[in-house]
Amino acid sequence: MEAMKGWEWLARGLVLSVLVGLPLGLWTADRAWNGSARWWIARIPESGGWQPPTLEVRAGEEIRLRVTSADVVHGLSIPGLGISVTVEPGKVREIRLRPERPGRYRVICTVVCSPRHGEMIGELVVRPPGGGPVPEIEAASDGAFLFQTYCAACHGPQGEGRVGPALNATGRVPQMDDATLREIIRQGRPGTAMPAWGERLSEAEIEALIRFLRELVREPSRP
């Protein structure tokens, strides 16, 4: 009987270890692996888009950004910081960054992930180290980066055309004037998959893109 009492207490201890110790162990393991990492979870816009939609960091501070997708393949791109990675479902990508310049950086998805893919916009807010208002960032002037970020998923990395038409010398860009291109980028093409980028791209970014498209026509292998 005494021996059985010993077994009973041992069993109680083991059950307690499993019910309390195991969750505690998981929590500890997560602290060890993820520590101070910040998370961005990608979901198609129909399910909420980037979660959280806005991430705030302090300028000059190094952050570990861990990104994962909860549904399909996405591409995380922060054009203003030169970041672009593919995010596969359930896999965790780690990005280390130290944004020096305060401002509001747009975060987009570079893989056509759903019918409302174009709405998948998030924001990385980099606050000044000493506090104060967050300044607006000047438009990114790198047309090639903007093209890879916003256009390449549909039009191909060389502008050779995929879901969308070719934008290189073989396409119709050479026949279009800047005003027409500007209009298409701003308003989209109703009845096609081409979204309206007018609310997401600034005038300067649209101009940088148009300049790049012209270069693409002249030098097709540029990207």
Binding site: V18, L22, P89, G90, K91
Partner: peptide
């Protein structure tokens, strides 16, 4: 039962706290 109870706790933790992507859960 004990080893299966441990796996069961892990299963519930993964189900409620883990990735919603089935083949990675």
């Amino acid at each position: 039962i004990l080893p299966n109870l441990a796996v069961f706790v892990l299963v519930l933790a993964a189900a409620f706290l883990g990735t919603p992507v089935g083949n990675r859960n």
